[in-house]
C-alpha cells in the first residue's frame, strides 16, 4: 500500500510541477502566442513596424470602398475602441463583409495605413439557420456581429 501511495504522490507532484512550468512558459510567451494584434495594440503597444504582422478587428459598416482597378479594396478595422485604415489588393474570402470580424496580414505603413497582403475572415461562435438570423434582426434581438 505504501509503495502505491508513493507512486501516486510522485505522479501527482510531477503533474503539478509540469502544469506549473507550462503555465509559466505560456505566460512568458503570451505576446508571441496571440495570432493577431488589435487596432488598440497597434496604437499603444510597441509593435514591430518593420516586420509583417497581423491585425484583427471588425470591418466598420459602410467603410468598404473598391478602387477603380476592381481588385484593390480599402476599409476601416475597429476593435470598438480604436480604428485602423486597411488597404488590400486581392481576393476576399466568402465570409468577408462589413460588420464581420477579419484578420489582415501585412505591414503598417508610415502614413498609418495598414497595407495587407492577406485577408482572412474570422467566424464567430454563433450557428443558426438564415430564417432565425433574419427574425432576430427584425425583432431587434440581434447580438451577433454587425449589431450596434
Amino acid at each position: 500500500m505504501t509503495r502505491k501511495r508513493r507512486r501516486l504522490t510522485i505522479v501527482l507532484l510531477g503533474m503539478l510541477a509540469l502544469g506549473g512550468a507550462t503555465a509559466l512558459v505560456l505566460a512568458a510567451f503570451e505576446d508571441n502566442l496571440v495570432f493577431f494584434y488589435s487596432p488598440t495594440d497597434i496604437a499603444t503597444k510597441p509593435v514591430p513596424k518593420d516586420r509583417r504582422l497581423r491585425v484583427g478587428g471588425i470591418v466598420v459598416d459602410g467603410s468598404l470602398q473598391r478602387e477603380r482597378d476592381g481588385v484593390t479594396v480599402a476599409f476601416v478595422l475597429t476593435d470598438l475602441a480604436t480604428t485602423l485604415p486597411v488597404r488590400y489588393k486581392g481576393v476576399l474570402p466568402d465570409l468577408f463583409r462589413e460588420g464581420q470580424g477579419i484578420v489582415a496580414q501585412g505591414r503598417l505603413g508610415t502614413d498609418g495605413t495598414f497595407a495587407a497582403d492577406e485577408v482572412l475572415a474570422k467566424h464567430d461562435e454563433n450557428y443558426m439557420p438564415p430564417e432565425v438570423a433574419n427574425a432576430l434582426r427584425k425583432s431587434g434581438q440581434w447580438k451577433g456581429e454587425g449589431a450596434r
Binding site: 495570432f35 484583427g56 484578420v103 467566424h123 461562435e125 454563433n126 439557420p129
Partner: peptide, 20 residues
C-alpha cells in the same frame, strides 16, 4: 486565452450553447 483565428467554443461554454 489568446486571440486566435479559430472561433471560440459554441457548445460547451458558460451561458449555454450559441448554436441553434
Amino acid at each position: 486565452w489568446w486571440n486566435t483565428l479559430h472561433q471560440p467554443a459554441s457548445v460547451v461554454k458558460i451561458g449555454g450553447p450559441t448554436i441553434h
